[in-house]
Simulated scan of single mutants.
Amino acid sequence: MFAETWFWIGLGLALCVLELIFPTAFVELVMGLSAILVAFVSLLVPSFGIQVFIWMLLSLVSIFLVRRFLPRRMPKILEESLDATTLTAIAPGEKGRVLHEGSPWAARCADKEMAIAPQTKVTVVGREGTTLVVMPQLGVDLPIYERED
């Protein structure tokens, strides 16, 4: 009977430590705390199968409650269109630099065949990691680059 209690305490502590090492949005932590609660239940319920069932039930209910009541983090999303200005030329299929919201960013043109000259007003149409995807604003004269094959 006490061996099962120590098993649940060890499992609970291990899951809590794993949450510190590999954060999983409190899933491991909740499962660990449920295991520690089952350690106390194991003193009253001798069947290991029932203990496992109680642990799974406690874990599922707790995870549901934690996810329901914790605020969700919203990913940072760019607005539909944002203005920027190129700092360097963006050659076809290459990256350049743009000034966006007062900070320089790596950028590439959404059209891989198009080039954009420096000091050109562009619209940010997306983001790939730390690289902005831009398109020249309408009415902007674009330079013609010849490709060297």
Score class of each variant (00 low, 15 high):
106 A>E: 06
22 F>A: 15
1 M>Y: 06
84 A>P: 02
69 F>P: 04
19 E>M: 10
137 Q>H: 07
12 G>M: 11
86 T>D: 04
67 R>L: 11
86 T>Y: 03
33 L>T: 12
9 I>G: 04
111 D>F: 00
106 A>T: 14
80 E>D: 11
42 S>E: 05
9 I>F: 11
54 I>Q: 04
65 L>T: 11
8 W>E: 02
79 E>Y: 03
18 L>P: 01
91 A>N: 12
129 G>Y: 00
63 I>W: 01
73 R>D: 09
86 T>L: 07
31 M>I: 13
41 V>I: 15
130 T>M: 10
122 V>A: 02
68 R>A: 12
10 G>W: 02
2 F>Y: 10
9 I>Q: 03
15 L>W: 05
73 R>P: 00
148 E>T: 15
102 G>Q: 06
141 D>Y: 07
138 L>I: 09
36 I>Y: 02
62 S>T: 08
58 L>C: 11
91 A>T: 06
8 W>C: 05
94 E>T: 08
11 L>A: 13
30 V>P: 00
61 V>G: 09
16 C>G: 12
105 W>G: 01
17 V>E: 03
140 V>G: 02
54 I>D: 04
63 I>L: 07
105 W>E: 04
29 L>N: 04
116 I>R: 00
16 C>S: 13
21 I>K: 12
17 V>A: 14
34 S>W: 01
102 G>V: 07
64 F>Q: 10
14 A>G: 09
49 G>D: 06
103 S>Q: 13
32 G>A: 09
149 D>P: 04
126 G>L: 02
35 A>Y: 04
12 G>C: 10
73 R>G: 08
31 M>S: 14
149 D>R: 14
41 V>Y: 08
16 C>I: 15
100 H>W: 15
85 T>Y: 04
137 Q>K: 15
5 T>N: 08
64 F>V: 14
43 L>F: 08
24 T>G: 07
15 L>G: 05
1 M>L: 12
46 P>D: 13
47 S>D: 14
53 F>M: 15
117 A>N: 02
